[in-house]
Design a protein around this nucleic acid. Structure first.
Length: 199
DNA sequence: CGCACGATGCTCT
DNA sequence: GAGCATCGTGCGC
């Protein structure tokens, strides 16, 4: 299995937001490898009032205007970070927010990054694993994704995507979470019945 | 259980 | 100076 290539990313943003479901997000970091299957996404289009790039290009949203397959990370509520896959052609600010992944590799490292030492290093309960990456801020922390990964390429770095190994799932479409504008747009996608989708 | 709220810092007006 | 593409805790039922 090899990294997703440029042609995967060169599709319209809504299609890509759905195609990303089931794909694997991998980070080969110095501390070790973590990976998970994408189970929830949201699309943000250039003509969408909830999109960071809706108004104009700024210092924060600049990565969104780069080529498809680029990384956009931003800070939210002063505490958390969110990870996006940049989409659309260069010059058009669109992206797909990764809202949840199902951990598949590096459980211990994820646990370490999320909870450090302040959690009993006992058996990994179902409960614990389920709380590792079931939200956009959580998965960023568990995967060791940082702000300075902005403008990185998912095609040419140790943070990358692998294709899905299973198309046999249903996709649910809903409105997006946590926004105050564009609230009626059906741009959220998640894997039906998956336990790792955010609440 | 569910709901409400505070933390916290940067970006844009 | 306001407003966040969130998360965890604490309280009430």
């Amino acid at each position: 299995m090899s990294k997703l290539s440029i042609d995967f990313y060169q599709k319209d943003t809504l299609t890509l937001a759905q195609n990303l479901l089931g794909c694997y997000l991998i980070h080969e970091s110095e501390d070790g490898l973590t990976a998970g299957k994408i189970v929830e996404t949201e699309a943000y289009l250039h003509d969408d009032p909830a999109c960071h790039a809706y108004q104009r290009k700024t210092a924060r949203n600049a990565p969104m205007f780069g080529p498809a397959g680029q990384v956009y990370v931003y800070q939210i509520y002063g505490i958390h970070y969110c990870f996006n896959v940049v989409t659309a052609e260069e010059g058009i600010g669109e992206a797909v927010l990764i809202r949840a992944i199902e951990p598949t590799q590096g459980f211990e490292l994820m646990q370490q990054r999320r909870f450090g030492g302040k959690l009993e290093a006992t058996t990994q309960t179902q409960q614990l694993i389920q709380s590792l990456c079931n939200g956009p801020g959580k998965l960023v922390q568990a995967m060791g994704i940082y702000r300075d990964m902005n403008f990185w390429s998912l095609l040419e770095s140790n943070l990358y995507l692998l294709p899905t190994d299973n198309h046999d799932f249903d996709t649910i479409v809903t409105t997006r979470i946590g926004i105050t504008k564009g609230t009626d747009l059906p741009y959220r996608f998640y894997v039906k019945g998956n336990r790792f989708v955010s609440k």
